[in-house]
Simulated assay, not measured.
Amino acid sequence: MYPGTLVEGVFAGGLRELQPEGQSTGMYKQPVQGDALIESHGIGGDQQADRRVHGGPEKAVHHYAAENYAKLAAAFEHCAAQLVPGSLGENLSSHGLDECNVFIGDVYRVGTSLLQVSQPRSPCWKINHRFAEDTLSMFVVQQHLTGWYYRVLSPGVVRAGDRIELVERYTERFSLDAFWTLQLQHRPQFQDLLQLSETPGLNQDWRQRLSGRAHWLKSKSKNSQ
């Protein structure tokens, strides 16, 4: 099991206008000094503009690997100085945990809270607007640099410097990187999609989407025989 790492940043923020069109966004986070309360809906004091795609119990806390920013900055030199921890709207930042060694359903103790990986983040167009880069969100997905969401199994308190420790792992197959590798295939094997959809801890919305696609591919396979 992964031995653990440290929380390097905790971020939260209210709503602001996103330029140039003035849409509301909760992407602009500020470092939290001292203790931050993690509740069932997320970090205390944090807000999300569009609750259809951000926030809620299945996407309560967003974690992003700090080392991903170097990759983004190398690809988007125009806004490299802005690509720093917290700027993609994450709540937790750390080194050592990333999309390759974090798995669907993983349970972590973060500070005194207990969190479970429910799904990867699906970046939206607001990332492009914030950084004035039309292809940034697409790059994030294509390179599997999305970060991930937690559901809160047990509320608690977290602060920079607290340990992040793996408590339980349900799959050795479906890391976040493997999730995206399979999901982005044009014609994945329906058996693989079904297995992913049945992974303990996966968000119910993704379960339905993946199993529905799997059954569609299975029917297509039968019809072509």
Rank of each mutant, 00 (worst) to 15 (best):
R109D: 11
T146S: 14
G89C: 01
S113Y: 04
S175L: 10
D162Q: 05
N223T: 01
L196G: 06
D192E: 11
Q225W: 04
D98R: 00
H144S: 14
V107R: 14
V117N: 04
Q195K: 08
D177M: 02
H63S: 12
L176I: 15
E198L: 12
I38T: 04
V140G: 08
V61G: 05
R163P: 09
S122M: 04
P57T: 11
Y108F: 15
R51I: 11
Q30I: 09
G9S: 13
N203L: 12
A65K: 02
L114W: 06
D46N: 03
T5H: 08
G96F: 04
V141M: 13
R159H: 14
E168D: 15
T135A: 08
D98M: 01
A65R: 01
V10W: 02
Q82R: 09
F131D: 09
S40D: 02
L114Q: 15
V140I: 14
A73S: 15
G96M: 07
R169D: 09
E58A: 12
G4T: 00
C79N: 11
A36E: 06
Q189I: 08
Q19W: 03
Q183H: 15
K126S: 02
L88E: 00
K29R: 13
E90A: 05
H62N: 09
L97Q: 09
G156E: 12
G212E: 01
T171M: 06
W206L: 14
G105A: 13
S87G: 07
H78P: 04
L196T: 06
E133D: 08
F179G: 10
Q183D: 15
K220P: 00
Q119E: 15
E8V: 06
Q48S: 04
S219P: 00
L97T: 06
K126Q: 05
I38G: 03
R130E: 01
H41L: 09
S94P: 06
H41Q: 11
E90M: 08
E77A: 15
L210P: 03
P85Q: 06
G105F: 07
L176C: 11
F179A: 11
F131V: 10
A73M: 09
T25H: 04
P57L: 10
G44R: 01
L37Q: 08
L88W: 01
L6C: 10
G105E: 10
S93N: 15
V140N: 08
G13E: 01
S219T: 14
G4F: 00
C100Q: 15
A73E: 07
